[in-house]
Amino acid sequence: MRFGVVVFPGSNCEADCYYVLRDVLGAEVDYVWHGESDIDRYDCLVLPGGFSYGDYLRPGAIARFSPVMESLKGFAEKGKFIIGICNGFQVLLEAGLLPGAMLWNESLHFVCRYVHLRLENDRTPWTHLGSEGQVLRIPIAHQQGNYYADEKTLRALEDSGRIILRYCEPSGEVTRRANPNGSVGNIAGICDEDFNVFGLMPHPERASEEVLGSTDGLLIWRSIMEHARGNG
């Protein structure tokens, strides 16, 4: 499985993703400049965190018109995989590859800390190595991660199992108190209808080595790599 880590002007987590995929997991990975539109050689594209285009106008609003984004739609339709992390998630929302939008955190603060996440669906390419109800500890770092979707969209997400991660207590209980940003339904990560496109606010690449304090993020990387090998 070949990964491409997309680099927008203002991305700042691309090196972390690249490092984890290549050095921790031994995957094949390249950087993909946002101006590229030929992405056929990749099986999975990673839209990393950061501040693409300075977050001007709205996070992700400008980045989504990059040539690479024009190619992404066809890419997903071919059954290939896309994961958007933090700013990458915001870009996917702006591009309409995932439903909903991001509001400012309820506190208006930039929140940078570990959170607990309840795994809501373990039957996806991204999570099949985990089990439903499992609690992951992965950091977040954002100011606009307050996920919003209208009720109809929410119900559709819920009914089709497309809510993948919710902010929770260490015990796994989904409470108002465990919600770091005010997102509706404590949503931290969602998938598209085919589960090929995954967007999440937490940073799995920052929780992929013991020395960093958590390896819970590996679950996502390993799941998708195993899935590509035909397992799960």
Binding site: L103, W104, S107, N146
Partner: peptide, 13 residues
Amino acid sequence: RPKQGIMDPQGQV
């Protein structure tokens, strides 16, 4: 402007 009924943390603060 934020749509009617949408949470507006900046406005609230």
